[in-house]
């Protein structure tokens, strides 16, 4: 029982950065932009977040630095792909390479330093409840925020007019433009939001997950977040479930080694990607040629006809 509780707590911790980054990317892709630079934005968020927290001693300021770093990276992406209509795939890949390199430079002076990690919630009585207490009422602020974020995104996309406009822009940017919606401005906001979320997700790692910074500490989580958005077929509800599923798989990977099960760890770490491929196949089998779950303008460059 105690082991199970520990496993669940560690699954939540592993899932949170995925959920944060993927939530942002969900909005970006729903607006029709494919930003493959999630990994680069996350690692920049991690480096700047740690730097901010270490220098000020405040986790909150650290988190804000992470958000700002992610948003700044996405601003580069937005300038190139939205302003100059550069290919999104190439720009996104370049953004990841840039982020990995730049974060190594920024973080070099902080490697080996330690901070006090983010505090966990403690409610008298509730947190002391057996089993559920620590899981439900003993998490850090990032965890609660990630859950609030995905709920807010769901409400935004399907219950607000602006959310409808955002989906419309992703589905058919020419028509949205013809109807008078500012396609590029909406996409800019979406990309910046996605960058901020990725930065926060990255900052979670040195601020709460492991209270120190090492270069390339995101270790491919940005790519998992990207796969997660596809896995969730661009739906917030499934994204939430998928984030915890993928988080569980990464934890499982550690525990199979600990339990001495003879499963190659490489196979386990490839599971999120395999699952994504399976989901992609399922999507195309069930939907057919007439329509697709993916935003129809995903990855397409839009140049207003002036």
């Amino acid at each position: 029982m105690l082991l199970l509780e520990a496993v669940i707590v560690s699954v939540i911790a592993a899932s949170t950065p995925l959920l944060l980054a993927a939530s942002g990317e969900l909005i970006v892709e729903r607006a029709g932009v494919l930003n493959l630079g999630v990994e680069g934005m996350m690692i920049m968020g991690a480096a700047c977040g740690f730097a901010g927290a270490y220098l000020t001693g405040s986790i909150l300021i650290g988190a804000l630095c992470g958000i700002a770093a992610g948003a700044a990276m996405s601003a580069i992406f937005a300038t190139l792909t939205l302003g100059l209509a550069v290919n999104q795939v190439a720009t996104g890949l370049a953004l990841t390479i840039l982020g990995v390199g730049l974060s190594g430079l920024i973080g070099a002076g902080f490697v080996g330093q330690k901070i006090v990690p983010a505090a966990h919630l403690y409610l008298p009585v509730l947190t002391d409840l057996p089993f559920v207490g620590r899981i439900l009422f003993g998490q850090d602020a990032f965890v609660y925020m990630s859950i609030a974020l995905i709920i807010a995104i769901r409400l935004f996309l399907f219950r607000t007019r602006l959310g409808l406009v955002l989906r419309a822009v992703g589905d058919n940017h020419a028509s949205a433009y013809a109807l008078g919606y500012p396609v590029l401005r909406i996409r800019l906001c979406a990309v910046l939001f996605g960058g901020a979320c990725a930065g926060l997700g990255g900052a979670y790692l040195p601020l709460a997950y492991t209270p120190f910074f090492v270069s390339e500490m995101t270790a491919g989580r940005g790519w998992i977040a990207l796969a997660l958005v596809v896995f969730a077929s661009w739906r917030p509800g499934r994204l939430f479930g998928g984030a915890y599923l993928f988080g569980a798989v990464t934890i499982l990977q550690l525990h199979t080694q600990a339990l001495g099960l003879d499963i190659p760890s490489q196979l386990m770490s490839s599971l999120p990607y395999l699952a994504t491929v399976v989901v992609l196949v399922l999507i195309s089998r069930t939907r057919g040629a007439a329509g697709s779950a993916a935003p129809a303008c995903l990855g397409l460059v839009f140049v207003p006809d002036r």
Partner: peptide
């Protein structure tokens, strides 16, 4: 108001959502 030759409709949205956007 304008009705386009190549429809300016959003395939993945419902009829009512398409109208709401306009």
């Amino acid at each position: 108001a304008m009705v386009f030759q190549h429809f300016s409709l959003f395939e993945n949205l419902t009829v009512a959502e398409n109208v709401a956007l306009g």
